[in-house]
Design a protein around this nucleic acid. Structure first.
Lengths: 187, 187
DNA sequence: ACCACTATATACAGGTCTGTATATAGTGAT
DNA sequence: ATCACTATATACAGACCTGTATATAGTGGT
């Protein structure tokens, strides 16, 4: 097996196991066993479990952001913010959805000095800024305020969906988002 | 030291350590060392670490619900739902606030067969039902929908506050809640 | 064919974890 | 003062964890 597929296989397996069993509850032995390789290989690529966690988080976030950006590109500035939660719902209700990485990671690594916590916190802030950018394009006044509110809805609904799949939480988050966006536009 | 104070001391210490260091990252040795007792005593009272976790969750949730109910009692039916987030903000911004237990617990125990996960999930649902009860008193039509939306805001803001203290997330959640409540009333 | 690289198999060191065993000490009630 | 109960001190078993050491096998490029 070529080097890149083995590394990405470890990343995929780790992503899945971290979400379904928890990060701290998943040992590297389990990861390599499921991925069909050995610890030597894992440590060659990632150096430490912490590095693996960080790369899993980075990849997951990047994939989400890329997917979302691609969906929104081409849309008119006003549409972007209003269609945002439609795409988020699509992402979350996909059967391959495995939860929002940085939410779980920040809960499992609450120590603010932890590199994992810092990355999670940064990703959360980055996503909020992404929403703020969309709000700005739509000529909304209090972009930061609306972005924070929408990110709260997103994180709450993702958490709820993670806690109980098929809860339909995102559907209601979408409606709430619509109301909040319209309120911010009317100002 | 009398029996009840020792047991409650363990509960208090465990609650704090679980929130500040994570549940799985906190060993019983650490808990008894901080509480100033021994493992023998802890296992006499709680039987297992899982039982301790469950009791910590139960106590924390009960305390929160009691505090909230007391604050809301005496208010007029319409006021209850509108003042809800004022009290929640008061609770969350209190320096002794240590996070919402069931959010972190469900993240650390994602396996749905886990007793800890089930209790967390139940507590989340129970809180949502509590909000639905307030909405019903206020003669709101889609009580379940509004309750879900408000609980999403609550959980998202609590998570954000947990991730970064003093973020002011609850302030914006409060404003969003106000808009959503007014929208539901107008229907 | 030879070399450099990558992957495997296996074992282990050193640490931490939960939970228990054993033996001792204090303490309140009758 | 004796008894029952509660708490302590200490040690340990058995499991799991991360990370490394060592020796072997395959594989592509020249």
């Amino acid at each position: 097996m070529s080097t890149s597929t083995l590394k990405s296989k470890i990343l995929i397996v780790a992503t899945d196991l971290f979400q379904t069993r928890g990060i701290n509850s998943t040992g590297v032995d389990t990861i390599v066993a499921v991925a069909g390789t050995t610890k030597m290989t894992l440590y060659k690529y990632f150096g430490s479990k912490e590095t693996l966690i960080l790369e899993v988080l980075k990849e997951g976030h990047q994939e989400f952001q890329s997917w979302l950006s691609e969906r929104l590109s081409g849309k008119k500035p006003d549409e972007k913010i209003t269609k945002l939660f439609d795409f988020i719902e699509e992402w979350v209700t996909d059967p391959s959805f495995r939860g929002v990485g940085f939410l779980k990671a920040s809960a499992e690594f609450p120590n603010e000095e932890s590199a994992v916590h810092q990355l999670s916190s940064n990703q959360s802030r980055q996503f909020k800024q992404f929403i703020a950018g969309l709000a700005e394009e739509a000529n909304i006044q209090d972009t930061e305020g609306l972005a924070l509110q929408l990110s709260l809805l997103f994180e709450g609904a993702a958490q709820a969906e993670q806690m109980k799949r098929g809860s339909g939480a995102m559907k209601y988050a979408k409606r709430a988002a619509k109301i909040l966006i319209e309120g911010a536009q009317a100002k």
